[in-house]
Design a protein around this nucleic acid. Structure first.
Lengths: 208, 208
DNA sequence: GTCTATACGCTGATAGAC
DNA sequence: GTCTATCAGCGTATAGAC
């Protein structure tokens, strides 16, 4: 079989650059307005491409969103994957909290994109989320439970512990508009690391 | 001056009922799709009224949203208003956490409506939020700070403490789709009250 | 690869009959 | 008060010239 004829061409530099532009623009727009509230026009303007040109690179608005989400989900779960069952329990958890907090600070748009989707009932995320996330959470919950049973950290509900970490760290990105309006002349991310470290240290350190 | 001619008629029972229907339908739709992602058609269908009839009761989509938000904001801040400076500090805070958690459970749509608006940068909430919320938060932050200075609860950042309470309690409503997908055969609200009580008790109880 | 032009359904809102 | 009919504009997406 002929190689050239049957394969897709490798994307040119221009193609790569434009796809990247589009995805970055889409991140900006989708994270601000959600899927249904966003328009292809906005994404085109934001990316500097014309609307038909944008639709030359992606077949539809939904396709852009899906590609964006797939890429996001993967990196979004990395901090949790990195939670090491062999590590020192409290230190592992505190490090996880700080990693998540950093992601909130460094990738707020990604966090809001995800938040938008979940708040609205995850209508487009269903399939993606189902397998990976569920399995990862089960696995890490068991790690946490084992640490509790061994007396390394206080007994508590493992999943609620995970939820609380997600909630507290992502809050600074997702509710940024509110947080910053209530903390004038003070960067929320200045005090947040220490606040969260203290909170989980007190929560989890066994009496001794 | 003639009374009847210059005043608006008192709304009839039908009007009251239909306005209520519309607002309830709008809450359902807006909280699921955000303002821009929602359509008047959906709200009309959800309320059982025709689209023109709906627009007989409200002049525009924006007007429905504004009325909904105004009503929401007021009740939304009630739990915080109820934080009593004269009460026993730890008990007051723990009670506040439980009140917020109950609102998450009993009014998840209201929570998601609010979350949608804030995540998207609060484009339509600006004016409403500015005055009330800011002042209330300042006032209650000082109450918390006073309790800390008096040694009644541990020293920490008062505003971050408030943020964390909002975040943790609203998470169960706002991220309900995710939470429930990860907790099959278990109601998140079963364990949540105890989890949050324990967390804040350990966080705030002074060593002694 | 990129553009202009355009098809065509959906959206918010109005007019006017009943 | 409620309906049918309708409008202008915006939305996604495509056709076809360059």
């Amino acid at each position: 079989m002929a190689n050239q004829a049957n394969r897709k061409r490798a994307p040119s530099r221009i193609q790569q650059r434009n796809r990247k532009r589009i995805l970055d623009a889409a991140l900006e727009v989708f994270s601000t307005s959600g899927f249904r509230g966003s328009t292809v026009d906005e994404i085109a303007n934001q990316s500097g491409l014309s609307k038909p040109n944008l639709l030359y690179y992606f077949p539809s608005k939904g396709a852009i969103f899906n590609e964006l989400m797939a890429g996001l989900l993967d990196t979004w779960l990395d901090p949790l994957r990195a939670l090491d069952p062999e590590g020192e329990p409290l230190a592992e958890i505190l490090a996880y909290v700080q990693r998540k907090l950093q992601m909130s600070r460094d990738f707020p748009r990604e966090s809001r994109l995800y938040a938008n989707e979940i708040v609205q009932g995850a209508p487009r995320l269903h399939a993606m989320i189902e397998g990976d996330l569920n399995q990862l959470v089960e696995e890490k919950s068991q790690v946490l439970q084992a640490w509790m049973d061994a007396g390394k950290i206080n007994q508590t509900h493992p999943k609620h512990l995970l939820f609380s970490i997600w909630s507290l760290t992502q809050h600074y990105a997702d509710f940024d508009a509110q947080v910053r309006r209530l903390m004038v002349n003070e960067d929320p991310f200045d005090a947040a690391p220490e606040y969260l470290e203290t909170l989980y240290r007190r929560m989890l350190t066994p009496k001794g």
